[in-house]
Structure formats: C-alpha cells, structure tokens
C-alpha cells in the first residue's frame, strides 16, 4: 500500500539555544503509515507519543533523521504549506480550537484564510458539517453545544481543508460518555467511508481497540506495533509500561490464569460473551488448561 507518512530514525530534543538542550525525547523512531490506515498511538504521559505526532505536520522538526509526508521532507521549509494542507490536527480541548461565534463560520475559518472562492467555501463547509452530522447546528453558537458536538465542529473545520490525514491528540479526554461515542463514531466514519488516514493518540484502551493498528510508545521508542488483537493480548507487558488493556481482555487474561481456556485476544464485550458461552456449551464440566485463539 502507498505510504503517506514515513519517519526514518527520528530523534528529537528541544533546542533552547547554544548549550541549552533538553534530554532526547525521541530516540530513533522509524514508522511507516500507509494511506487510509487508522492507527492508534498509546503510551504513558512523557512517552513521546504527542511529540512524535507533532512531527507529522511539521509542528516539530526532527533533530535527527527525516520525516516524509506524501514524499515531502518536513525539513524543507518551502514544502511546509503543502505538508500542513495534507495533515490536519484535532486536539483535546474543543474550546481552544473554535474561534468564530457561529458554527459554520468556524468551519469556514481556514478556507477563508487560504483565499478559497466563496462558492467553494460554501460547498466544502456544508459537506464537512454533513460528514460530522452537525448540519442542523450550522447557525448555532459554539458555546451552546455539548462537548461532543464542539469536538465534531472542530473536526469539520479540519475536514473542510480536505486533508489526507487527521491526527487526533486525545480527542475524547474531556468528553462525557455520549460525547466520546459521538466522536469515535465520527472518526470511524472518516476512516471507513471517506478513507481518511487517521492517527489517534488516546488513553482509552477500548477506543484503541477499534483501530486497524496500535503503536505503543515507551521512553521515546516504539515498544509494540501490531493489530490491536495482538498488542492487547500481551496484558502483562502493557501493564508494565503503565498502560492498560480493555476490561474484557483483562478479564479473559485472569480467567485463563485460572485454567479457563478462553482466547487471549478478546477485544469487545460481545466477543467475550461469545467465547464464554462457547466454553460453557462445549465443555460443560471440566476446567481445561488448553490455550485457544493464540493466533
């Protein structure tokens, strides 16, 4: 598959001037993200995941190594505009990202700055609001919206610029459960319907379980990289780096330790229920120790 973002041996430290540098935050990170992939990045605070993500649209430039976005080297200053056009970002706090007093004006903000013709702006704003299912709120004031709605407006503002990829930095951290569901549904829609490449940083393991691929960062390096089913199956390793796994994966892990032969790679409540029912119906009164589903 075609690569959209590629980092090659990227290291990073803050440079505050001569002889005043921070410790190295990234130590030689190489990562390749194909077009259309939905990738979740996990790691404890300070693991370097946000720092890495900020390299994807040249907010940060590598201290060593290179970052290519759609083949463009982020170190080349004249490519900056093209790079930022391709990679949009959505942050944690929706209140910090909305600038206008009317929803549709907020979504149009970047397009106006880019000098896009008014007809084209109208079309793109309507489309973006429709994609995040906020068309009914086009004339509302952002402060009247719920957290989930505000965050969807922020997403629409990025979508209107038609990026190839959106980087989400903990997009649900400040939202209530309903808001979290809304934003995750929107992200899944973008990934599945629109084919947008998604990079999502999160501390919620059940959200990461929905991605195509999970990358776990620890101490400025990539510790694990694989499909969620594989990554979360290593419950002990995940906990040892200050992370977690979805509750059902943990539950399955604990029961396996007691000799109940459930799969190690359970990701959702439905899968767990299926697996337990299959066990109850298949092996009525014996507790085997055989491992299953370790594919």
């Amino acid at each position: 598959m075609e690569t959209l973002i590629e980092t090659k041996d990227v290291s990073f430290y803050y440079n505050f001037g001569e002889e005043n540098q921070s410790d190295e935050i990234l130590h030689g990170v190489s990562l390749s993200i194909p077009k259309g992939q939905f990738i979740a990045v996990l790691g404890h605070n300070g693991s370097g995941k946000s720092t890495l993500a900020k390299h994807f649209n040249a907010i940060y430039l590598p201290s060593g190594g290179t970052v290519y976005v759609d083949g463009l080297d982020t170190l080349e200053e004249d490519k900056l505009f093209e790079i930022r056009r391709r990679i949009g970002m959505v942050f944690q706090n929706p209140d910090n990202q909305l600038v206008a007093t009317v929803v549709e004006e907020d979504v149009a903000f970047a397009l106006e700055n880019l000098g896009v013709p008014p007809d084209e702006i109208r079309r793109r704003v309507d489309e973006a609001l429709q994609t995040v299912r906020m068309s009914d709120y086009a004339k509302h004031a952002p402060h009247q919206l719920s957290g989930g709605q505000k965050q969807r407006v922020a997403i629409a503002g990025v979508l209107a610029m038609a990026p190839s990829c959106i980087v989400f930095d903990e997009p649900t951290a400040m939202l209530d459960p309903q808001g979290r569901r809304e934003v995750m549904d929107t992200i899944l829609d973008l990934s599945r319907q629109q084919g947008t490449t998604i990079v999502m940083i999160t501390h919620y393991m059940d959200e990461a379980a929905l991605a195509d691929r999970v990358v776990v960062m620890d101490d400025g390096r990539i510790l694990l990289d694989g499909v969620p089913r594989k990554v979360f199956a290593d419950v002990e390793l995940m906990k040892s780096v200050g992370l977690d796994v979805p509750q059902v994966t943990d539950l399955s892990f604990r029961l396996r330790q007691k000799g109940i032969p459930l799969p190690a790679d359970v990701l959702t409540p439905e899968e767990f229920a299926d697996a337990l029912v299959a066990y109850l119906e298949g092996a009525p009164d014996q507790g085997g120790t055989q491992e299953t589903g370790d594919a």
């Binding site: 539950l251 409540p269 229920a273 337990l276």
Partner: peptide, 28 residues
C-alpha cells in the same frame, strides 16, 4: 465494560450473578 458483559450473558440465558459486577476482579 464488565457490567455490560454480564447483561449480554443474561440475554443469552446465563445468569452468572444476581447483581452485575463492577470491576474486572469481581467479574472474574
């Protein structure tokens, strides 16, 4: 999530506990 699991199991005819568990430890 674990509370949700127990209601799914109930729907499929398995009443594991009279009250739903609140934590992974309890569920286990």
């Amino acid at each position: 999530q674990v509370t949700h699991v127990f209601s799914l199991l109930r729907q499929r005819g398995y009443e594991i506990a009279s009250k739903p568990p609140l934590t992974v430890e309890e569920a286990s």
